[in-house]
Design a protein around this nucleic acid. Structure first.
Lengths: 198, 198
DNA sequence: CATCAGATAGACAGATCTGTCTATCGTTAC
DNA sequence: GTAACGATAGACAGATCTGTCTATCTGATG
């Protein structure tokens, strides 16, 4: 029993973060007060402010958590497409489809957070950092796929991805992710063709 | 002088809407209180609530205004590309580039509003209505361009557009709109090619 | 047993938010 | 001139928000 003691990142903190994860995403950041998070995570107010001195600290931690989850899904979807980098560039769009189909889907948490924050703040910076990381990961994939212009291909694919994420919650029809994937396939194909007909 | 009397949509109302337009877009909807709008538009509180019984009514009017402006820019950019519908489908992306370059650009007002509202509310519905209208306009253009699958092409192009709008404010580099336009050209080309090689 | 860190409950302060209400002032129309 | 209307200034209510603080409890470690 005492074996797992050293690794205990505070159950209360974990509960707060879990509650914030659900509430911030479902209702927006400003719409959810710390009082509600405190109540729903069964935590004392002093405990909350001990772990997160200000609400924005919690928001950044929330974005860190979303980053971990979403990046993981992206990588898994890419890996599931097999070893070929070009196929992975297409396969990652399966993560988009899965997300959009999820109950309570409400768009990209980062774009949403950016909509509620100002440039120069820690929250906004965290959003930019996430988008930059995704772009550079796709870029690397595009390079390994042998794209003629990996930068342009990566840019286009992330645009499609962001568009799908953003409009996925504004659109009843579920064909947006499919359209995104189909276009991604066409664009990857054109960008990696070697016969010069691209 | 009495000639223009019948058409006087209240100067105070216009001032309120103008102020809301600037503040809501720059700071987000929840971040701007009605008190601030009242103060900066030099209007009495009773006047404000006479024209907009609740804040949400002003938000919807704000989105109406944005819709008018943005749709106009979109149509103008398309028209500037000439009479060919296929060229217009590509040309409309010039509106994206112009928007992203504008000082104080902070993404798509509709996506931002959706991030701060709940499905089922008037504000959220207004956002969906805008996106639907843009999609059907692009769809019509795609049909006139003779696309094999106008629905798929329209969907893809609006995804690119939304992606550009959403990430335009999260990205220091200004090449996103150019990449979107280049991809749009490639996709339109493939979708309207008649030699069956698409 | 003693100590100390982390958690708890909740009062409190100060700001801010939406929305209501009263009382007054000009201007226009009849 | 007078009635009606739009606008003004600003007090007010009631809720909610972030953040602080005190006092107490619990459980593990020395």
């Amino acid at each position: 029993m005492s074996t797992t003691a050293p690794v205990r990142p505070s159950a209360a903190r974990e509960r707060i973060l879990e509650t914030a994860f659900a509430l911030f995403y479902a209702h927006g950041i400003r719409a959810v007060g710390v009082d509600r998070i405190i109540a729903e995570s069964d935590v004392a107010k002093a405990t909350f402010y001990k772990h997160f001195p200000a609400k924005d600290d919690l928001v950044v931690a929330y974005l860190d958590k979303v980053d971990g989850v979403w990046t993981g899904q992206l990588h898994e979807a890419a890996a599931a497409a097999g070893p070929d980098p070009a196929a992975q560039l297409v396969g990652l769009f399966d993560a988009l489809r899965a997300s959009c189909r999820r109950e309570g889907y409400r768009g990209c948490a980062f774009i949403n957070a950016a909509a509620e924050s100002q440039p120069g703040t820690a929250v906004h910076d965290r959003t930019v950092a996430h988008k930059t990381a995704v772009l550079s990961w796709v870029h690397e994939l595009a390079e390994r796929a042998g794209a003629r212009d990996p930068g342009a291909l990566a840019r286009t694919l992330t645009l499609l991805l962001d568009g799908g994420l953003a409009s996925g919650s504004l659109d009843a029809s579920p064909d947006a992710p499919d359209a995104a994937k189909a276009s991604a396939r066409a664009l990857v194909d054109v960008a990696t063709r070697t016969d010069g007909r691209g």
